[in-house]
Design a binder for these strands. Structure first.
Lengths: 339, 339
DNA sequence: CAAATTACCGAAAGCGCTTTCGGGAAGAGG
DNA sequence: CCTCTTCCCGAAAGCGCTTTCGGTAATTTG
């Protein structure tokens, strides 16, 4: 490969001139630039990124902190989609993503420390746990940052419109004739979980429906298993709901499983509507009606907000709320009027 | 944060000594080491990774090339799991993962070039397309590398035992009484696809079953849609199979959908067995019987092989074949003897 | 007590690149 | 023909760290 020195020697110019030629400085003649570029191609020279970063103070790297909760990591189907679209968007601008370990050669360090060590230009955090100390630390640092799926006044954030999503879901069920509408909620310490509960309550109130005791059940961390357990509680109620709005597709899948195990049918006996529209949603039986969060748009918005800050080299704080959509499939039906 | 110079000034020692203290050289007294460490903590000093890499020629970074085929990227549920476990394993050793764009500030470059530019210590490629020029280039380079889900004599590889997996599937169906066993294959240009076909053929032959014409149908890139189309072809046959071994869970999901749309039942009318055991497999209806590939073990093995090479600073070529398991669920049943 | 180790520490070179600043050559202007 | 620009180019410093190599002071050894 060779260094810039080799290139200089080969072409007979100084490393200064070589560097300038490579970086399109205007004070180098076309002729010599051509020669240098040619020589560079011949010895397929590539600049060393570390040396560049060291001298320019720009690393063209973005640190990503990913959800560690629930041991899912990169396997999480929703965060996954976001990261993928974020990656595409940042890649176009020439940035690389770096997934940092918290372990610097067997010396434990925080994510922030690690990112400083790596001298990343910016950070994206995709991890909904606002209680996480590491996340707090990141949000309070002075590195450009964007956090996804969580609100904050101190840094740029992007999340989708959970209140509206909940409203869509509730109204949809109501339009189908349902009045006994329950909600299986995600953990309240997570913004998305809390917002959907709030949206549920608001929407119910707006259409004049009351929430019966026991109709709001917490299912923790959005897993299939917890969704199933929550649904079982609902099924044990004396007056069962006829429809349930579930704060996540995975939980909805668990809920449906619970319903089936009781010998009941979806949607004939109970309608269920999910949230997220993960890929799997369209393949389960019945196909899941759900509120789609646009992971592509979320990822792109996050990229945009972060790139802005990185090029300006200053922290900004902008909030971007992404709209959601109702995806009508087969897990909800009009209320059966028993006669 | 400060540099090593600041630390030197603050403590009154030379940067040499400071560096040594930080790196546990033995020719610095305990007393001065303590002082330096203390001062470092006070000003929360962190070494600059770029400077370190520049001078040590070790970046503690692993470049990952991920499947780009099919536009799935990080969303692929199988590769996903591998990367996650790979990440855990390498993280423990202090390595960071970097997902490189092929776009260095608007100058297109290959992955190999980019990885050289970033001076990664090693590369992992998780992308089954052996025809990909980029992959070829990586495999022929002299950087430590491990490739997953693909065979090669030129570099370390890890993949699971596809021949055996196919045999398990076929024998299982045969044990259930099936003889008319079809195979929906993945693309043959992909190692895994080809190997499963071969395993299918071998297993059929071993138990003395012949493959009827039309029973081997190619479904391309393992997608749900293609699996569905392939199954439709099978259903159009005059003599339908009673069981089908599908080379991927996603395709199996499509296949089941096709069967259902014809008004047939799984497994009563047709048994289907998948491959991979993606998370979704246990949640669809019926729960999918499948061959599990152990993504955790694959990821760990890959990490191991790569770390070996990176610490030895030389390329090695070792092959690791990971065993597979049959996961019995509800999509296969004994052959119904029509009377 | 002299000689030989051993224990600590620092000067300096080097890793590969960028960028400021100054200087020579060539062209423009009078 | 002389001065003033403009155009090109390179010396040198700097980015933050590691590591070799020597040198002094403190300890052992006989």
């Amino acid at each position: 490969m060779g260094t810039i020195y080799d290139l200089a020697k080969k072409t007979g110019f100084s490393i200064t001139t070589v560097s300038k030629a490579l970086n399109n400085y205007k004070d180098v003649s076309e002729k010599t630039r051509a020669k240098i570029l040619q020589a560079a191609a011949e010895m397929d020279y590539l600049p060393n990124a570390h040396a560049q970063s060291l001298s320019t103070k720009k690393s063209w790297a973005i640190g990503v902190m990913f959800s560690e909760a629930n041991e899912v990591g990169m396997k999480h189907p929703f965060f996954n989609g976001i990261i993928e679209s974020f990656r595409h968007a940042t890649e176009e601008q020439g940035y690389d993503l770096i997934f940092a370990s918290r372990n610097l050669r067997n010396r434990d360090m925080s994510y922030l420390e690690h990112f400083k060590h790596r001298a990343v230009d910016g950070i994206v955090v995709i991890c909904s746990d606002r209680m996480d100390e590491q996340v707090q630390e990141l949000m309070q640092s002075d590195i450009p940052i964007v956090v996804v799926d969580m609100d904050s006044a101190n840094c740029s954030v992007v999340y989708s419109d959970n209140i509206e999503g909940a409203r869509l879901a509730v109204n949809y069920l109501h339009d189908l004739g349902h009045a006994r509408i329950a909600h299986i909620a995600g953990d309240q310490t997570i913004d998305a979980g809390a917002a959907r509960v709030k949206g549920y309550e608001l929407a119910m109130e707006a259409i004049g429906l009351s929430i019966e005791p026991g109709y709001l059940v917490n299912a923790g961390f959005f897993s299939v298993r917890e969704g199933k357990q929550a649904m079982e509680k609902l099924l044990d109620l004396e007056s069962r709901p006829t429809a349930v709005f579930v704060a996540g597709d995975q939980m909805a899948i668990g809920a449906i499983e619970a319903i089936h195990e009781r010998g009941l049918r979806v949607p004939e006996d109970i309608s269920v509507i999910g949230y997220d529209d993960i890929e799997m949603a369209q393949y389960i039986t019945p196909k899941l009606t759900t509120i789609r969060q646009d992971t592509d748009e979320i990822g792109e918005a996050a990229a945009e907000l972060l790139i802005e800050q990185m090029t300006a080299k200053e922290r900004r704080t902008e909030r971007r709320v992404i709209p959601v959509h109702l995806i009508e499939r087969a897990s909800c039906a009009p209320l059966q009027t028993k006669n």
